[in-house]
Amino acid sequence: MKLATALWVFLLILTALTTQAAVVAAGFLVPFVLVTTYIKGQVVIDHFMGLRHATSRLRWIVPAWLLVVIGGIAYTFTLS
């Protein structure tokens, strides 16, 4: 449970940074937020959902979902 608690604090810090980033850095904002979001999502998937220790054939779906969504969003920000 110590790991989970540490990760919880870590997630809260990342959230604060994400929010703060919106006001400070302009060109830096999107990549930074995408990376922190990806890390947050992966932490939740691995340690909260517990998929890191799952042995199911289907366990790749959720991380793949995160990758596709974050990747797709990142792509659209290169369009404009």
Binding site: T15, T18, T19, A21, A22, L29, V30, V33, L34, T36, T37, K40, G41, V44, I45, F48, M49, G50, V62, L66, V69, I70, I73, F77
Partner: peptide, 25 residues
């Protein structure tokens, strides 16, 4: 675990939704 998995999914979705709609511009 069934209920927990669903709740984490709701959390996970919001973790993406928040930066996407509120923050990134």
């Amino acid at each position: 675990e069934t209920g927990a998995s669903y709740w984490h999914m709701v959390d996970l979705v919001w973790i993406v939704l928040f930066p996407l709609i509120y923050v990134m511009h």
